[in-house]
Nucleic acid binder design. Sequence first.
DNA 1: ACTTGACGTGCAACCGGTTGCACGCAACCA
DNA 2: TGGTTGCGTGCAACCGGTTGCACGTCAAGT
Lengths: 303, 303
Amino acid sequence: MARREGRRTAPTIKVVAAAAGVSTSTVSRVFSHPHRLKESTVAHVTEVASRLGYKPSHTARALSTGRLGMIAVVVPDIANPFFPPVIRAAQAHAATGGVSTVVGDTDENPVKELDLLAELERRTDGVVLVSSRLPEQQVREVAGRGHPLVLVNRDVPGVPRILVDSAPGIREAVDHLAGLGHRHLAYISGPAGSWSDAQRRDAVRERCAALGVTATVLRPHRPEHDEGRAAAAEVLDTGATAAIAFDDGLAQGALAGMAERGVRVPAEISIVGCDDILAATTYPPLTTVHGRGGEAGRSPSSC
Amino acid sequence: MARREGRRTAPTIKVVAAAAGVSTSTVSRVFSHPHRLKESTVAHVTEVASRLGYKPSHTARALSTGRLGMIAVVVPDIANPFFPPVIRAAQAHAATGGVSTVVGDTDENPVKELDLLAELERRTDGVVLVSSRLPEQQVREVAGRGHPLVLVNRDVPGVPRILVDSAPGIREAVDHLAGLGHRHLAYISGPAGSWSDAQRRDAVRERCAALGVTATVLRPHRPEHDEGRAAAAEVLDTGATAAIAFDDGLAQGALAGMAERGVRVPAEISIVGCDDILAATTYPPLTTVHGRGGEAGRSPSSC
DNA sequence: ACTTGACGTGCAACCGGTTGCACGCAACCA
DNA sequence: TGGTTGCGTGCAACCGGTTGCACGTCAAGT
């Protein structure tokens, strides 16, 4: 009668060593510095290990090396289509180094962001903080705690960061609209505290000034469809004939808002988004961002 | 001249013990079984520890106890508004037990789902698998690996699971539509492999049969806005005068699709969603789900 | 006064790998 | 042939907690 398959405990380095007739050090090295061993040894141990279904324990390894093999990517809102590509890229890059990735969502909430960061510092080797909504002082404090931190789309002196330059795309958009004859345009602002928003807003203002076009900057908006719908009314109030939105979510929302009010786009008003629609704005730099973001987050770089 | 603040290494149980004049065992117990110690000891050690900024190491603890203090919640698509509440609830519940939560997104992709599960099994104490898109056989295999697993909205014999019963809400919806005089309605199916979709589809068929209403079931759809828009055309093709969608995303998409085609809702056609709109469908059971989901995922329950 | 028991704490082994150091062996040089 | 050199491997300490067992103390029981 076969014994019931018990909850078989995972094989350790010790049983592999015994089965292969070598010391535990050797098994360990097979999985960490194989080049320091004789090829035949590596082959033999590998074979035995895989036959036994051995997998090194992340935990034990972490205890002696101090490396968890895990990084975190923190974003304000995973549902915002801007972020998943960033996350995926970091993930892919980290994976090539045997590092896994966890994502954190702060729900556009600075308090939640701070808590999450504290937790993740203890659980990961480094964090990539995308579009932080924290005041600069707090970002500096977090960075000062000595845990590797890389910012994306946020510029705080002394903290490593990666910035996606969306200004050229915005300028093109302004030029395009001006070329169509628009003399007054509105900028639908993104979240307060967003570096990208500040950059885009400034780009709009500056380019409009250069072209002699009137620019009206609307209040900050959470980058969501609903806020965009509300913004449609605000745009109409300004008398602008075209609008540039902080991102695609807001732009699409604005389109919907216009439709609700019976305003036809683009016949009566023009709306331009950012990030996804203006592919040129993000395509090449974003690709770079991803790679470097993952890499930077992984490296135990100095603060 | 003050020495430059080095990357001060985190204090260990050892230095706390020395500073407090007790053994490391005592310090350890202060943080794990305080009730076994004299109150005065606990107070003293706690004071010293917090003065030194001591925080127990997750990693070291994990190595000796075998518990990582972390669970995972895996969903097909975090951007789908159905899931965040589930995640938040599990998170909140886990937090009360000092357990932290990580979320995994499978992108509605079974292959990705399988990979993710393998990785998470090694990184967490248990996983809550929400709306799995895996074939039953695979789910059974995963569960068989012995890592605590709880399914939400998926029913596989022998695997612990939590089901949200949406059938009553669907029946109400059918009754409502029939009451308005509709004699033919379409069901906009959700993702293939979804247990909830099967349940809702069956509920529609059954209730329609009982009321003598014609029911047409459309092809499977990814639960996204765009697919809903496409579904609008399919609904019109069936000649149905009302439609019930698998979820809100599809329903809203269908609304948009109708609008694009100049079909007025609800004047010319009625559309009903699920999950968010039919609050009654999810409100009480969902609350239960969350709590039990987090709990179940945390417990080292047998397979 | 002597035993018994409960309680609070320390000792030391252990969790599963990693790594500095030392040893044995073989090829190499003089 | 004796002395180096260097490679491949093992020994044992260590990472930072946890926990079974044993010891000492003090109060209650007889």
